[in-house]
Write a protein that binds this DNA or RNA. Structure first.
Length: 218
DNA sequence: AATATCGGCGC
DNA sequence: GCGCCGATATT
C-alpha cells in the first residue's frame, strides 16, 4: 500500500461510518497547487462545499462547529491559540445521524447456539407441531430498534427530513432509546404486521431477573 | 451525459 | 484570501 492510500484511510478515521474525505490538488492553471476538498456519503454521493452538505443533512444537524476543509471539529479553544496541534477528534457529532446504512434485518448467525426442537406430525414423535406456538413471533434481539438509529427519511431532493414529534405520553423504557427510536419502532411495526400496536404490557421488572431485565417497546 | 477539474465571483 | 459554485475540459 502506497503512502497516498494510507493517507486517505487515515482521513477516514474519525469520520462517521461510511463517509470519506478526499483531498485533490490542482495541477494546472492559474490556481495550480490549490487543494479542493470533497466528501462522499455512505451511498456514494459527492459533496464539494459545506452549504451543499448542510442542504443534504437538513436542519437537524449542527455543522457550525465542523470545519469542511480539515474535516475536524473546531475545538472551543482553537480561537485564541496559535497551537492547533491537539485538536479534539470528535467528528462523530456533526454527521452522526447519517452514518452507515445497515438494513434493520435480523442478524442472528448460526454460530450463535440456540436450542432447537425438531417437530413433525409423524405419529411416533412425541413432540408435534403446535400451530399456536408456531404462530408466535420469531424472537427479536433486545432493543433491535436501535438498528434503525441511523436511518432517516428523505424528500425528492434527498434532503433529510426531520422526524415527527411524538406525544409525550409515549415513553421509552429501554436504555438509550430516543424519541426517534420510538417513532422508528412504531413505523416499522405498522409496516411489518397487521396486529394492533401496543406499548409495554408486562411488568416493568421481569420476574425472571428482577434486578436486571427491563422491558422494551413491542 | 456524467464526472473531473479549473476559473473566478463575491463575501 | 478563500469558500463556493458555475464554466469548461475530460471520459
Amino acid at each position: 500500500m502506497d503512502v497516498l492510500e494510507k493517507r486517505k484511510i487515515q482521513d477516514c478515521l474519525g469520520l462517521p461510518t461510511g463517509w470519506k474525505r478526499e483531498e485533490v490538488i490542482r495541477k494546472s492553471g492559474l490556481s495550480a497547487g490549490k487543494t479542493d476538498i470533497y466528501y462522499f456519503s455512505p451511498c456514494g454521493r459527492k459533496f464539494r462545499s459545506k452549504p451543499q452538505l448542510a442542504r443534504f443533512l437538513g436542519d437537524s444537524f449542527d455543522l457550525s462547529a465542523f470545519d469542511f476543509r480539515s474535516g475536524k471539529q473546531l475545538s472551543v479553544g482553537a480561537r485564541k491559540s496559535k497551537r492547533l496541534k491537539n485538536i479534539q477528534y470528535d467528528y462523530s457529532r456533526g454527521l452522526k445521524q447519517d452514518a452507515s446504512l445497515v438494513l434493520p434485518i435480523r442478524q442472528t448467525a448460526s454460530i450463535f447456539k440456540q436450542p432447537v426442537t425438531l417437530k413433525t406430525n409423524h405419529a411416533q414423535n412425541r413432540i408435534k407441531a403446535d400451530p399456536k406456538q408456531d404462530a408466535k413471533d420469531v424472537p427479536k434481539q433486545l432493543f433491535w430498534e436501535k438498528r434503525l438509529s441511523n436511518l432517516t427519511a428523505s424528500d425528492s431532493v434527498e434532503r433529510v427530513l426531520k422526524a415527527f414529534d411524538i406525544p409525550d405520553n409515549l415513553l421509552a423504557t429501554g436504555p438509550g432509546l430516543t424519541d426517534e427510536n420510538i417513532l422508528q419502532s412504531i413505523s416499522s411495526s405498522l409496516h411489518l404486521s397487521n396486529h394492533p400496536i401496543t406499548g409495554q404490557t408486562s411488568s416493568k421488572v421481569s420476574h425472571l431477573f428482577p434486578s436486571k431485565r427491563r422491558g422494551t417497546m413491542k
